[in-house]
Design a protein around this nucleic acid. Structure first.
Lengths: 154, 154
DNA sequence: TATTGTTATACTCTATAACTATA
DNA sequence: TATAGTTATAGAGTATAACAATA
């Protein structure tokens, strides 16, 4: 109690009470996302890749011939924001643009030999990082977490 | 190898294979965060609040006299980026800056009557939204999700 | 000497409008 | 008329450096 009789000064806070925010799933998802993205970005530096660049590289690797439009829809990226990513990967000789077999407007994206090699190295880094990020989770918990998250955004 | 005799066209993709990304906890956390933040922003529009503004308002409500520095540390915001948020809430008459009882450099933040009223309304909106966002989750699943997320970012 | 709050500033990420060429 | 890819541009959000006042 802070001096009952004499004119008390405005209160100050020592320990911040965050219970109101921390009981929100949204707040926790947001904080976890910030932590994960930060770790992701740090680990991708060794490959000179941004988080988005890795996602694009990975999707092309597993979907040879994928189009820009498909990448945008899958990753929720706006088309104008994908152009720079693709151009940079192209300039680094990591991917190839080939004419689409049936649609003359579209371009099929493929990894070059260098692109495939970098993608494989980056994927190995990501797998190791994933283990690190979820080191406090059991395999079952990790699986549960992913299942519950997909219930939110799908 | 590029077809020596028949010259086949480059392959195209119909259904995009996202299994490689979706097995990553980080990817799912990120996607869920985007979905949640989008919903949050939409719902806060009716109160003319950004996501960050709501967090600040909520923390002041539950921690009268909290300082800018404490807000920054709690919400992982850089001090220069908090200034604008505080100034706007102040200009709207939602908060009051009172001298800190023991530290002459610091300022204690408090909600005005209007600020407290708006915060209460916004909190009710957030609670309703939280129910909507996790409507596909049982109460137990929601609790589990929060626990697992905190294992990642804490 | 360190810390609180602030200004100025820059960098990244994301969003919108409008064009071109094909369908 | 609609769609794929692109350009230019604007707006958020976030980051660093440096300052005045106070500890």
């Amino acid at each position: 109690m802070r001096s009952p009789t004499t004119h008390s000064p405005p209160p100050s806070v020592e320990q911040v009470d965050t219970r109101q925010l921390e009981k929100l799933a949204g707040y926790n998802v947001r904080r976890a996302s910030l932590a994960v993205m930060d770790r992701f970005a740090t680990h991708m530096q060794q490959h000179d890749l941004k988080v988005a660049s890795y996602s694009v590289l990975s999707l092309i690797a597993h979907n040879p011939g994928i189009t820009s439009r498909q990448l945008c829809a899958t990753l929720a990226i706006q088309p104008p924001n994908l152009v720079g990513i693709i151009n940079e990967l192209d300039a680094r000789g990591l991917l190839q643009r080939l004419p689409h077999p049936t649609d003359g407007r579209a371009v099929g994206l493929h990894l070059t030999k260098d692109g495939a090699a970098l993608q494989a190295r980056a994927e190995a880094t990501v797998d190791a990082m994933e283990d690190e990020a979820t080191q406090h989770l059991s395999a079952a918990e990790r699986k549960t977490l992913i299942r519950l998250l997909q219930k939110i955004y799908r």
